[in-house]
Structures are given as C-alpha cells and as structure tokens.
C-alpha cells in the first residue's frame, strides 16, 4: 500500500463511522437509554399516578374519572388522617434521633482511634443489609413472649416486673418502629457527616485552642457552621426517605395494631395492591407529594440559608 491510498482511506471513513462522529447523533444515542428508561418508568408513571388519583380504577379494570371524590372520601377517613399524623411524627422523631446519635458517632469516629477504617466498615453494616431482613430481626427482638430486651430488663436486671408488649399497643408499637428506623439510619448519617468533618482544617481547631476556646465553643463556632452545608443535604435525603418509608413498617407491624402505625406509604400499598383499589391508593400516594416537597424544601433551605448568610461560597 502506498501513501495515496492510505490518505484516501483516512479522509473517507464509511458512512457509519461518520454517523457515529456526528455530534448531535452521538449525543442523542448516548442519552437515549437513560432518558428512555426514566421517561417510561418514572415520568410516565408519575403522571399516570396523578391521573389515577382522580379515577376509581381497580386492578384489572379501567376506571372512570371521578374528580376529587377519592380525596373527599379520604378526608373523612380516620385511618388516613391518622396515617398523616403518624408519618409526620415518625419522620420528625426518627430524623431528630438519627441526627443527634449520628452526629455524636461521627464526632467519636473523628478522634484518633485505632482501627478506624475497620470500625467505619462495620458501622455501615446496618445500612448495607436488606432493610426487610433486619426488620425481621427487630420483629423477633420485639416478640411479646421471647423478647430479649424484656428478658434482660425483667429476668436479669429486675427493673420491670412484666414483659413489654412492644407491638401490641399503639404507642409502644410506634416507638418500637422509630427505634428500628433510627438504628438503620445512624450509619448513613454518621459516615456522611464524618466525611464532612474530615474536610474541616485542623488548623482552625489549633487556632481556637490557642484562643482558649472550650470544646463546646469549638463545636459551636467551628464544627457546626462548617458542617452545615453537608448536614443540609444529608438531612434532606434522610427526611425524604424516612417520610416515604415502607419496608420497616410493613415488615414489623403491617400497620397494626388496629391500623395505628400505618404510614401513608403502607396505607397506599394496602388499599392499592391487596385491596385492589388502585385509584384510592394512588390518591394516598399523591397526597404525600405536597408534604414531601414541603419537607424537602424546609430541611434544605432552613439549613442551607445559614450557609449563605455566612457568605461561604464552597459547595
């Protein structure tokens, strides 16, 4: 082969190769799978869900438009109203618990301790393991007759004189669920906040120490403002996923006793899938959206605005 044929080959690649180098085509091709999947299985169902909420669709049948009927019926439904309060209480209490304990754990891990990376790996375990499976373990721990917690409190420490009925009464069941949720949420909060803590320069603490700041003052004036941006993001995610939690409640109580622990997500499932009332289930799910938007905006801006006030520009 001589030089002329080689040049010709170089300047005229076949049409397929040219097509793949044509930028708009390439962009469309690269975005197609991701956007296609998301449009078909996320955007379309989201719209369909809002539509379904205004119909009386049942599984296997086409419903007709009923306007606000589902929502009007739900507004008079004590179980639904109760599930709203439960969801808000659950989200608020569990989030506070997770962040207080998670931040504490993050601060502990930020000290000089041996085997830090091993510890970090072990601490994440509750977050890795399938939630339903650890929920089943909690279900067993909360067993009315053979609860290990009751056993320790009654038979070993003699603090109580009777076994606790963890899941039998509404308030005990609610608190039991919140404890399980906090247990599962601590690792995520602790590890992400630890990453945030590690970006704070030690020289700031040295300077504070020279100025005679107490540990509390160091936390108040150095750690907390510098941690706030990352805390806002972690909190937003945490609130979002706690508010829409389904697995823990479904696995441990299934909404019982007497529907007292239903969250909006579990109620939507129960009405929608086993109850076959897709329209009503969708209405409950749609009713979550305003709360979700509010909770997300609140946790993001309430914490994010402080960052802005302090004029820190780094993300």
């Amino acid at each position: 082969m001589d030089a002329t044929t080689w040049v010709a080959k170089r300047t005229k690649p076949n049409w397929l190769a040219r097509l793949f180098d044509y930028k708009p085509f390439l962009i469309a091709l690269c975005l197609a799978p991701a956007l296609g999947l998301l449009l078909v299985f996320l955007t379309y169902p989201l719209g369909l869900g809002i539509y379904l909420a205004f119909t009386d669709t049942e599984i296997g049948g086409n419903g007709s438009w009923v306007g606000l009927e589902n929502f009007i019926a739900l507004a008079d439904d004590p179980i639904f109203i109760n599930s709203i309060w439960n969801t808000m209480f659950y989200t608020f209490t569990a989030t506070v618990g997770k962040f207080v304990l998670g931040l504490w754990l993050a601060l502990l891990l930020n000290q000089h301790i041996p085997f830090k990376s091993v510890l970090r790996a072990i601490i994440l375990l509750p977050y890795i393991v399938p939630t339903v499976l650890s929920a089943i373990a909690f279900w067993w721990i909360y067993d009315p007759q053979f609860s290990i917690i009751s056993y320790v409190l009654v038979d070993q420490l003699h603090i109580l004189d009777h076994y606790i009925d963890f899941l039998g009464t509404p308030w005990a069941a609610r608190w039991s669920l919140i404890v399980a949720n906090i247990w599962r949420g601590i690792p995520f909060v602790a590890i992400t906040l630890l990453a945030g803590l590690q970006t704070i320069s030690p020289s700031l603490y040295e300077a504070a120490l020279l100025d005679g700041a107490s540990p509390w003052q160091q936390f108040r004036h150095i750690t907390s403002p510098l941690l706030m941006p990352i805390l806002a993001i972690v909190m937003t995610f945490s609130v979002l996923f706690t508010f829409t939690d389904f697995q823990l409640v479904y696995a441990i109580t299934r909404g019982g006793p007497l529907n007292a622990t239903h969250l909006m997500a579990t109620l939507a499932f129960q009405r929608g899938i086993p109850g076959a009332q897709l329209g009503e289930g969708a209405a409950i799910a749609v009713a979550m959206i305003p709360f979700l938007i509010f909770a997300t905006l609140f946790s993001y801006y309430a914490l994010g605005r402080r960052k802005w006030q302090q004029g820190s520009s780094d993300e």
């Binding site: 169902p45 989201l46 379904l52 829409t244 799910a285």
Partner: peptide, 14 residues
C-alpha cells in the same frame, strides 16, 4: 428525589 413509595401503584399498572 422521586421516592418509589409514590411510584409503585402507577408502575404496577404500567
């Protein structure tokens, strides 16, 4: 940010 809990009912239909 769209949680599965509000998607599963219409997704079941899809």
């Amino acid at each position: 940010l769209v949680p599965p809990s509000i998607l599963f009912i219409p997704l079941a239909q899809v």
